[in-house]
Design a protein around this nucleic acid. Structure first.
Lengths: 209, 209
DNA sequence: CACCAATAGTGATGCAGGTCACATGCAGTA
DNA sequence: TACTGCATGTGACCTGCATCACTATTGGTG
């Protein structure tokens, strides 16, 4: 039995039963690749616990972070790929331990008409993901790196629920599609401004963050 | 009767009849605002003729072009907003004359279960729009302005079907969220490289474009 | 024609951020 | 302890793009 918070209030009882019956629970550890570029997607994941990061790669091989998915969220790109039997355009990686329910392809369509709460969930998921992408575009197009870095750190804090972020400068640079040197410099600046403290593989956000 | 190419092959006959019965045909001219930020969306548009450009604005008021929509395409953001009775996050402007069919809110859901071709259309629309946004992110994040400008001109050529593009440097700069001066310089560079010819309010793409 | 507004061309300057090079420091292991 | 690999700090330099300032050209209108 899945006891994710919000699950019961999101789906109607009959649908919950079906989710439990047909959904397959899967576990992933830090860094596991849950979905990869070009792979066919046969299941749609709903995250029960943990955080997944979703990436996009350009032709030259550079990757950029699109958004994070956490409890009770799903990737609507997986949904539309699944329904249309298309290959994935993105990669999904587990951030720490992740527990998710994989819904088989055949049920997705069936539930759409059968359960209003399912349709609502899917539609909400679509628009949330759209909004994430829009925010991502805005961020890259209009904001300078220092602002983007601050947003990044805030998001990390939100997801982990802690002011202490365990991550290397290199990993941040990777997510933000820039270089380690640049991130190190900006972080040092934030430290000088008294907003964070830097340690090896660890960043501590101070009060006003 | 709508005689858009592809329409008949996209939707099954019974659905086509319903589209004709319940869909409301609307016409727009150059620059007309078809949809605006914060407005409620009560109809979903399917474009019959012409091109629509879809924009996003950040807090500070700067706008950037997300993508173009043309014949037989639709805006899935409109769809999900519509279904969820949410406000628009984007603005849509007519590029030249546009003819579209507005599908009333109440029919969207009904058809989803009733007509497989409708569901397929909606799902395809979702993933096409996702892909556009992903390409947009890639473009901004990884490509330099000159490359982006070339892509922009190619897209304009594709949409108009002509190698002669009627647009001012200022308008291009607006779409690409940069300044007129920068665009003028890059265009002049392209002209010096023998790839385009510049006239007032007009750009002629040469052979290798 | 004369005037004005829109469009376009171009030099000068400044800054953000990418890149290279190298030093330092920490942690695990032989 | 000495060695090795990873993480970080920092100076030097360069490029792309934004911004300012000014000029030149064109088309439309009184």
């Amino acid at each position: 039995m899945i006891n994710a918070p919000g699950f019961a209030s999101t789906f109607e009882p009959a649908l919950l039963d079906e989710i439990h019956e047909y959904g397959e629970i899967r576990y992933f550890g830090e860094g596991d690749i849950i979905m990869d570029y070009g792979k066919y997607i046969r299941m749609m994941p709903i995250i029960v616990k943990g955080t997944i990061k979703v990436l996009r790669m350009d032709e030259s091989g550079k990757e950029i972070l699109l958004y994070y998915l956490s409890s009770n969220e799903s990737c609507s790109m997986a949904y539309s790929c699944c329904v249309q039997a298309k290959r994935s355009e993105v990669k999904a990686i587990a951030e720490g331990d992740v527990e998710l329910i994989a819904i088989p392809h055949s049920k997705l369509d069936e539930w759409l008409c059968k359960y209003p709460s399912w349709k609502n969930y899917i539609m909400r998921s679509f628009s949330e993901r759209f909004l994430e992408l829009l925010k991502s575009i805005e961020s890259i197009a209009f904001h300078k790196l220092d602002e983007r870095l601050i947003s990044y750190l805030k998001e990390k804090k939100r997801l982990s629920g802690s002011s202490i972020i365990r991550v290397s400068h290199y990993a941040i640079a990777d997510d933000m599609a820039t270089s380690r040197v640049v991130i190190s410099r900006l972080l040092k600046q934030l430290e000088n401004d008294g907003r964070i403290l830097l340690y090896r593989n660890e960043i501590k956000l101070l009060k006003d963050f």
